[in-house]
Computed example of a mutant assay.
Amino acid sequence: MQYEPGLSRAALQDLAINKYFASVDRKDLEATLDCFHDEALLCTQTSFTRHAGKAAIRRMFVDFFESYNSIIHRDFTCTIDDLNGRIAANFVAELKDAEGNTTLLHNTNFWRVRDDKFQEVYIYMSGANVLV
């Protein structure tokens, strides 16, 4: 399904980088979830993991935030399709656990945006899925 475009190119990039990833990096659960529609879908394609609806996405982020002391997303390269409300981003995810171990992932996310929130998120992860 195609959604009517609702955000400019700059606003789409702001949603992905400055709202979503910045909220995840702060472990701000409510701000992170505010980026999603209630019936949103988040899929990690490389592990066939699917979270449908905000309640399932909330549970996934609670577990993710509890698993790492530090979460940093950096080195973004974005491609924006503002005419269709689509975002693609390549980036590095740097995760540090309580024992000081670092996990580096080179990921790509694809978003479908409806109005001003994520309707669908598809994640391609370079390593083991940390979003279970």
Results as ranks from 00 to 15, higher is better:
Met1Ile: 14
Pro5Thr: 15
Ser8Asn: 07
Ala11Val: 11
Leu12Thr: 09
Asn18Gly: 12
Lys19Asp: 15
Lys19Ala: 14
Ser23Ile: 10
Ser23Met: 09
Val24Lys: 03
Val24Asp: 03
Asp25Phe: 10
Arg26Leu: 06
Arg26Gly: 06
Arg26Asn: 06
Asp28Tyr: 05
Asp28Met: 04
Asp28Cys: 07
Leu29Ile: 13
Glu30Val: 10
Glu30Cys: 05
Glu30Asp: 08
Ala31Cys: 01
Thr32Arg: 01
Leu33Ile: 12
Asp34Phe: 13
Phe36Ala: 03
Phe36Lys: 01
Phe36Val: 08
His37Cys: 00
Ala40Leu: 00
Ala40Thr: 04
Leu41Thr: 14
Ser47Lys: 04
Ser47Asp: 06
Ser47Tyr: 03
Arg50Thr: 13
Ala52Gly: 06
Ala52Leu: 01
Lys54Glu: 05
Lys54Pro: 00
Lys54Ala: 08
Ala55Ser: 10
Arg58Glu: 11
Arg58Cys: 04
Arg59Phe: 07
Arg59Val: 10
Met60Glu: 01
Phe64Ile: 02
Ser67Ile: 04
Ser70Lys: 10
His73Phe: 11
Asp75Trp: 11
Leu83Val: 12
Arg86Gln: 13
Ala88Met: 12
Ala89Ile: 11
Ala89Trp: 08
Asn90Ser: 13
Phe91Ser: 01
Phe91Met: 11
Glu94Trp: 01
Glu94Ile: 11
Leu95Trp: 07
Leu95Phe: 02
Lys96Gln: 06
Thr102Glu: 07
Thr103Phe: 00
Leu104Thr: 07
His106Met: 02
Thr108Asp: 05
Trp111Met: 15
Val113Glu: 00
Val113Pro: 04
Val113Lys: 03
Asp115Phe: 12
Phe118Asp: 00
Gln119Val: 11
Val121Gln: 01
Tyr124Ser: 02
Ser126His: 03
Val130Phe: 05
Leu131Glu: 05
Leu131Gln: 08
Val132Phe: 10
Val132Arg: 13
Val132Thr: 13
